[in-house]
Design a protein around this nucleic acid. Sequence first.
DNA 1: TTGTGATTTTTGTTGTAACATAATTGCAAT
DNA 2: ATTGCAATTATGTTACAACAAAAATCACAA
Lengths: 236, 236
Amino acid sequence: MDESTTAGASGSEGHQGRLSDYVYESLKDQLTRGAYSPGKKLPIRTVAETLGVGSTPAREAINRLVFEGALVMSGPKTVIVPYLDLAGLYEVTQMRLALEGLAAEKGAANATGETVETLLKLQEKISLSLDEKRYRDALHVNKEFHFTIYRLCGMPHLLSTIEALWLRVGSSFHDLYPEFAEQRYGVHNHMVAIEALAEGEASFVRAAMENDIRDGYRRLKKAAMSRVGHRAAPSG
Amino acid sequence: MDESTTAGASGSEGHQGRLSDYVYESLKDQLTRGAYSPGKKLPIRTVAETLGVGSTPAREAINRLVFEGALVMSGPKTVIVPYLDLAGLYEVTQMRLALEGLAAEKGAANATGETVETLLKLQEKISLSLDEKRYRDALHVNKEFHFTIYRLCGMPHLLSTIEALWLRVGSSFHDLYPEFAEQRYGVHNHMVAIEALAEGEASFVRAAMENDIRDGYRRLKKAAMSRVGHRAAPSG
DNA sequence: TTGTGATTTTTGTTGTAACATAATTGCAAT
DNA sequence: ATTGCAATTATGTTACAACAAAAATCACAA
């Protein structure tokens, strides 16, 4: 790069390694936080200038997110944050049930006492976050809870595919914030999962996690349906 | 592009649309045909010059394939065709069972008499190809057979994920050619699937397809194990 | 006010050069 | 012969400019 120092100077962020990855992680972070409202356009040059990098890494990151389904194309040269779509939500949920169910059951076989300890601590964090209405934190720890179980199976390909699915639905989570605390999302299923894990009942762990996914689906579905009316006029 | 006509002239291929896609499809095609032996390096400039394009579309296509798992990085700046790996093969097989099982069962619910006709014709083609030892054709029609069923479920995201899995194992198929005809790969399972489909027994269709995947896994596994000895010295 | 066509602006794609670093080669010492 | 290190080559990454096409804007007429 002929101006490698410029990016660091103008952006002043403490990143290292490939700029493509930096842009990718930045956008991914914003998306999973629901910072972008559905329909928002993300042109290459705008993203590049915002993050103080050239158009090449910005383009690569955006294309990667489009490929993953975290962003969608509304036209031949227009990339936007996807609208919540009932059919797509159903699809992703079915895939999540299949793959996360698999990961949970396989992972449960490798659980240790330490795993149970970790999960209990994470669940406490979730409850505390819900109490204090720190929804973003709750969401973050909730993800950590799931993947703590899934990671046990030792299948990195499976893990990355599941992460891609989370990224796909992630941009819809901001609709859940209000209801998130009141419904004590996931508390019951998580406790059941922990108990089953401690008892070595792998299939029960799977069922608990699947129920958790289904419960989340019902909430996302409601949010999606309530927005169908607003979707006719995508104002960008 | 400042020399858009150069690419078309030098390559003289009849492609249109994005050059990235052209490179991607070309490489994908070579990989699924087993044209590249595991360990082969694929540098950006080499691929670009071979196909008569700039380095940008070549880079994008290669990165995409790496992301999909069809190519792997053996070092920080070295992309190679992946070696057959037992653990990875197991992973992909588990994922295939989960997702293709899902697609088969959901798809079976939407099957029609026409579907059965199509599948029977495809199966005839497979048998004919096996008789005449046209393994590549058999492999191609075999894929068409599977996806004819999977497409019925009407879940494009699921379909594309399954396709990515096929691409991952695709580069290993060339090891199967000799045994392919003798074992009449997939014939029995396919016929069971067709019958179950005609009778509307969705779960039986799923089971038949899953058995087909397991049978293929056993063969790929044998090929992988027989090559472990040669893998210590990746000659490139 | 609304629809339609032309004009202007925006934007994705691609080739290229420069740079840093990984990969390779060559050489010398043991 | 083999190992370790230095020099050389090869290669991925990035910024940038030019181009084509899409998107937005605008003007004008119904």
